[in-house]
Design a protein around this nucleic acid. Sequence first.
DNA 1: GATCGATGTGTTAGCGTTAACAAACAGTGG
DNA 2: CCACTGTTTGTTAACGCTAACACATCGATC
Lengths: 343, 343
Amino acid sequence: MRAKSNDDRPSSRPAVLEDVAALAGVSAMTVSRALNAPERVQVETRARVLAAVRELGYRPNAAARQLVTGRSGVLGVVSIDTPLYGPVSTLYSIERAARLNDYSVSIASLSTLNRRSIEESLRQLQSQLVDGVIIVAPHESAADGLRHLRSKIPVVAVDAGAGLPVPVVMVDQRAGAARATKHLLDLGHGTVWHLAGPADWIDANGRVEGWRETLEAGRHPVPEVLRGDWSSRSGYQLGRHLARDPEVTAIFAGNDQMALGVLRALREAGRRVPEDVSVVGFDDIPESAYFWPPLTTVRQDFEEVGRHAFHVLLDRLAGRPSQIRRLVEPELIVRESTATAPR
Amino acid sequence: MRAKSNDDRPSSRPAVLEDVAALAGVSAMTVSRALNAPERVQVETRARVLAAVRELGYRPNAAARQLVTGRSGVLGVVSIDTPLYGPVSTLYSIERAARLNDYSVSIASLSTLNRRSIEESLRQLQSQLVDGVIIVAPHESAADGLRHLRSKIPVVAVDAGAGLPVPVVMVDQRAGAARATKHLLDLGHGTVWHLAGPADWIDANGRVEGWRETLEAGRHPVPEVLRGDWSSRSGYQLGRHLARDPEVTAIFAGNDQMALGVLRALREAGRRVPEDVSVVGFDDIPESAYFWPPLTTVRQDFEEVGRHAFHVLLDRLAGRPSQIRRLVEPELIVRESTATAPR
DNA sequence: GATCGATGTGTTAGCGTTAACAAACAGTGG
DNA sequence: CCACTGTTTGTTAACGCTAACACATCGATC
């Protein structure tokens, strides 16, 4: 009990449980119960307590509660600090799902994902006493870190490779790439060139696999993979090579930005889209509907990814069993950058 | 002291101060000092303590520390949940600055910024015991919330209007818009049309002002402002109107996405860029160098904005006086979408 | 050689909350 | 009418840390 437990209420200091208890004429424990387990307190008592809470503007002290319960109601999210559409959308959707469930979110953004950086940020989040962590790990280099996790707290990965000792939630990249490729083949193109994202990105490699499998399944020749870095610049540079080759009539770019660069390279080379060459992107960023021409692309439902990741983590926290690999279906959005093959 | 203070170390339970103290043969207080005020402990003792800390893998319990010191080392960031380049870059740069200074960052992303939503998220962050809050408030509607803050903890705003009772850090939008406009006037254009962002965005209005002032200063006619919504779609729609008017030879778009839509509208109307019409954007998103043609635009240094915001907040936390309004200088990036006026 | 300050370390008492147990009370059934 | 159950409330003791003070020890000072 406070030294000065007299009747003044110096609103300078925030109200604590004891103040509420005094005002309501009950013990501190009853107040605690009225707030955390309302059914264990008589209706009338609870009403008095809640009135006192409101009058004093009482807010429970998170640190004290956490010290005794061991739970903080805080979720850690480890992410990569690029302003790329995918990772950002995922981060926000996780935050939204968490807040809807009265969790708050503490972020650790990393410029590179590897074992050291992941362990470091995990340590930092742990000493902040987060209840669980979601790692957005779109890099292959993160696998090493995820494989050797020896964290006590539950971890869920988003956009991570297979065969890891943690649950993974992600968009089915292979299915998305397969749909994009099949769309082009169905339009009569002999084969599809693929402009991939960096080899150390999980998503990039998943898309390469989906593309390759689809070509092979239809016995189409498989051109060499071209590696970009997600930027329009790299799409442009690689696009200039492709533009020179008259054989090339269908290009599947690993994301919309690279597709934008390709569109520019083709135009500069005098090749029309979609009359001479068809182009498909990936992501469906808000701009892609306004590219020239509007881009056929693959939409990923990040909202669903975030929601799932959060709920899988909740399951872990509650000790419930949960799926260890959850794939979200992507959707092909057909616009004007694709058409039947020339001739 | 723990009930079972015998010599076993059940590594099941994480080590606490007392365990370290026992191993090092000192009192808990000495361990605390060795970690928080190393100069107040003898060199040799400190070495023993640190060795014990390492051996046990001891990490201080944040909740306990916070309960007694009243400080958490956590910073709240209230932001808007769009994947737009500006707000996202700002968020990441704040996070980076914070982490470099051993603060962690808890985010609250809102879909709308108004008095109610700001107060609500501030309450939530406060009950999480953050030491201070940075509000990224690019909406006019946030002003009402910021004006009536009665929060006990320090608050700094980013991208907020003038005349508020909190320190504000932001890019100088008027200067940026003035530079863009002047660039076009210097190229001989009679006047400049402006395609503004939504009227409820601070930045959009700052750019309108900078544009208008520059035109008026040079006694150029001031065309009616066209209002878009930052999207390529709106840029395209408004651009189609402008494309029909042969008087229009210079367009300043409120951001790069809208500029992209304008480029498309002009091209569809058969008007060449930059030969017939010059176009300037704002933001310098990574793609804008790969638009067709590459876009002249205004670059904002978000990294610096984040750094400043964090340090102003640190000043507040330390009770030091700080600037109440800090403007970061934008930079004009000239590319190929602008040229001397036709005729 | 008593007094002082400086230096290093220990002791005590909380910070605000909840788990665990204890107590008071009413109703129930034999 | 008494033990026995269940419901509601209170009491106590942590949770892990640090502020504040207390206590040694040492050399320097007059």
